[in-house]
């Protein structure tokens, strides 16, 4: 149990470090949804950088999967339509809201941005309520 707190903190440190690196070298916010969605956006953007970022994520993930597959189990064992709907919601929501957990939740709050505070409070609250409702429904149905 203690171990998971230490790992969570170490992970948080690395996430912060990566955000600092990107700002120090390239002057950009580390927002995953923004960087990644620019790959399929018509607006001008550096698609090579976006592709390199995704490649970096995949390289580390591939290495760590070899060490311990339990770290990267993939999606929850739920129906494919549920995962499809969740994916659409995440894709549309992060574009409308201009950010996700990294851009708003980490970088935005670190900049003390009002918009990011509002967005983070909103998606955290909605996510908590969503899990509550799903648990409630699955309890009723089972």
């Amino acid at each position: 149990m203690l171990n998971s707190y230490v790992l969570a903190s170490a992970g948080g440190l690395l996430i912060g470090l990566s955000a600092i690196l990107l700002m120090y070298f390239n002057g950009r916010i580390l927002g995953v949804s923004g960087i990644v969605s620019s790959l399929v956006s018509l607006a001008p953007s550096n698609k090579l950088c976006s592709a390199a970022f995704i490649l970096g994520i995949l390289i580390s993930a591939a290495v760590f999967k070899q060490i311990n597959p339990a770290w990267i189990p993939g999606a929850l064992p739920m129906s494919l339509p549920s995962l499809f709907i969740a994916g659409i919601l995440v894709g549309v929501g992060t574009r409308l809201g201009n950010g996700c957990t990294s851009g708003h939740g980490v970088c935005g709050i670190a900049r003390l941005s009002k918009r990011s505070l509002a967005a983070t409070a909103t998606f955290m609250t909605v996510a908590i309520c969503t899990v509550y409702v799903i648990n409630l429904l699955s309890g009723v149905l089972s």
Partner: peptide
């Protein structure tokens, strides 16, 4: 901003996955 955050929160809660 807020409606986007609501939709994202729903998707994150359903799947446990963010981008």
């Amino acid at each position: 901003l807020l409606s986007g955050a609501v939709l994202f929160g729903m998707g994150w809660g359903i799947s446990g996955l963010c981008p």
